[in-house]
């Protein structure tokens, strides 16, 4: 069974997120380990990661559109996304609660920001991966 344009889009988003933001977290982790705790110092790396993400998304969707006819998401695509989101939203919620707890115990803002960003990143990766499982295995 060949993949629909919507499924290919999910693969591209997963790849883009994993690569671009994965690289950000590698660099940011290295910076944090080096003792850099001023939040604006991370902005440049983050901008580069976002530009890389956008480039992967645009390039990937262009290639997918050239390989097959682009189609809008249909009722199944939206249902798969909604169900995957419902099952992975707890990751982001856990990160938010953790960040609030970190603020209460006066953890430095740079750690709180990265905890929030990491929970968003993991939540999105999990959602996209689960969507692909639903596409392949059915639901």
């Amino acid at each position: 069974m060949s993949a629909s344009f919507a499924e290919k889009s999910v693969w591209i988003q997963l790849l883009g997120m994993a690569v671009a933001l994965g690289l950000y977290f590698v660099v940011a982790g290295w910076m944090l380990a080096s003792g850099i705790t001023i939040l604006p110092d991370f902005a440049g790396v983050f901008v580069v990661a976002v530009v890389l993400l956008v480039a992967i998304l645009i390039g990937g969707h262009l290639v997918a559109a050239l390989m097959g006819r682009p189609e809008p998401a249909d009722v199944r695509d939206r249902e798969l996304e909604g169900r995957a989101e419902g099952r992975t939203g707890w990751i982001l919620a856990t990160g938010v609660i953790g960040a609030i707890g970190a603020l209460v115990v006066a953890v430095e803002p740079v750690w709180v920001a990265h905890l929030l960003l990491l929970s968003l990143y993991l939540s999105e990766l999990a959602r996209l991966a689960l969507q692909l499982v639903y596409y392949r295995r059915g639901m």
Binding site: S4, F5, D74, R76, D77, M139
Partner: peptide, 16 residues
């Protein structure tokens, strides 16, 4: 819907 959705319904992988 997409052809893949018809395929999924037909194969019992998705209840429409």
């Amino acid at each position: 819907v997409s052809r893949q959705t018809v395929n999924a319904i037909e194969g019992g992988k998705y209840a429409p």
